[in-house]
Write a protein that binds this DNA or RNA. Structure first.
Lengths: 187, 187
DNA sequence: GATGTTAAACTAACAGTGTTAGATTTAGGA
DNA sequence: TCCTAAATCTAACACTGTTAGTTTAACATC
C-alpha cells in the first residue's frame, strides 16, 4: 500500500469539510466524529487545528458571510445597493441551507461584520440618516434576510412547506417594502 | 415521611417546567434529564406524556406564540394593528429569551399560525393587497420580529453586545419603515 | 545517515445527551 | 381483596463534545 491521500490537515480543509457536511446533512448532522471521518482522521485530531466546535462554526459562518460583501466600486443609488446586498446575501445563504440556522443564532464576527457594513455605509453617505440610523437600516435588512431564509430553509433538510416561487415573491415584496420605507424617510 | 408533592405529571406541568428551564438556562441548557429532575421524576417517565423532545419543543413554541394573538374587537387602522402585533410579539419573545432560537428554527404549528393570522387578515380586508400579498405582509413582519429578537437575545444566556435602548430604537425604526413601505403600496 | 525535537495524529476514556424495552410500582374499579 | 391498566423506574444503547496521555511522523542538526 502506498501512503495515499494523507495531505496534511489544515484550517481551510476543515472548514470546507464542515461546509460539505452541513450541505449534505444539515446542522443537526454535524458532529466532530463525522467531520473526522470525512477527513480520514480521528475526531480528537481536529482539536489541534480548531479550539472547539463552537469556534469552528464561527469560522464557517464568517467564511460564508464574507462572500456577501458588495463591490464598493459599483456606484448605484443607495436603495439599489441595499437591494443588491440583500439579494446576494440571500442567494449565498440558500446555497448553504445547513448554515442558515447557525448564522441565525451565532451572528457574524465583529471583523466580518465590519467588512460587510463598510461599503454599505459608504453607499449611504448621501442620505439624511445619521450614523446610528444607517446601522439600523443595514441591520434591519440583514435581519430580514436571515429571518426569511430561516422561514424557507430553517429546518433543512426537512422539507419546506411552500414552493420556491412563493418564497421568491415573498422576499421581493418584503424587501421592497422595507427599502421603500427607509427611502421615504431618509432619502 | 408523608407522600408529598407527587401531584400527577401532566402535559401542562411539563410545558411549564420546560419554559422555566429555558428561561433559566437557555435552549442549550434544556435536557430531558434536567426536565425530569425539575419535576421530581425520571427522564424516561416524560415519554408517557410527550412523544419526544422535538414535539415537546413544538408545544412550548405554540404555547408562547399563541399569546401574540391580537384582539379582533379593537378596530384600528391596519397599519397600527400590524404595529401592535409586532410589538406585542416582540415583548412576548423577550419575556422568554430561551425560546427565541427555538421559534426561529421550528416555526409555529399550522393551527397556531392560523389563529395568529386570522385577525390580522381581517384587519387588512380594506387594503389593495390580494390574499397572497396579505400573507406576504404578515409573514414579513413576523420574520422581522423573530430576526430582530434573534439578534438581541439569540444566544442567550450569553451577554448581548449592545444596550437595551439600542435594540428598542432599532426595532422601532425598522418596523416603522417596513409598515410604511407596505402602506405606501397597498393602502 | 543517525539523532533529537516538535508537531500532529492516535487510543482510551469521561461525562453528558435522547430514547427505548422491560420490570415495578401505583391507583381505581369490580 | 383482587385485577387491570396506567404511570413511573431501572438499565441500557448509541450517540455527543472534549481531554489526557501515548505513539507516530516529519524535519532540523550533528
Amino acid at each position: 500500500m502506498s501512503k495515499l491521500q494523507k495531505e496534511p490537515l489544515s484550517n481551510k480543509r476543515i472548514i470546507q469539510a464542515t461546509l460539505d457536511i452541513l450541505d449534505s446533512y444539515g446542522a443537526a448532522g454535524l458532529s466532530m466524529r463525522r467531520l473526522g471521518t470525512t477527513l480520514n482522521v480521528e475526531a480528537a485530531s481536529l482539536y489541534h487545528h480548531v479550539p472547539n466546535k463552537e469556534a469552528l462554526i464561527q469560522q464557517v459562518i464568517d467564511a460564508v458571510s464574507i462572500k456577501a460583501v458588495v463591490d464598493e466600486a459599483t456606484v448605484l443609488p443607495w436603495t439599489q445597493t441595499l437591494h443588491a446586498f440583500a439579494t446576494n446575501f440571500r442567494n449565498i445563504l440558500k446555497a448553504h441551507p445547513g448554515v442558515v440556522p447557525l448564522v441565525a443564532i451565532h451572528s457574524v464576527s465583529e471583523e466580518t461584520g465590519a467588512k460587510l457594513a463598510i461599503p454599505l455605509i459608504a453607499a449611504m453617505e448621501e442620505t439624511k440618516a445619521n450614523p446610528e440610523e444607517v446601522l439600523f437600516i443595514i441591520q434591519s435588512i440583514a435581519v430580514f434576510v436571515i429571518g426569511h431564509a430561516l422561514a424557507e430553509v430553517g429546518n433543512w433538510p426537512e422539507r419546506p412547506t411552500a414552493p420556491t416561487e412563493y418564497y421568491n415573491q415573498w422576499f421581493e415584496v418584503g424587501l421592497t417594502a422595507l427599502i421603500n420605507g427607509f427611502k421615504q424617510q431618509y432619502d
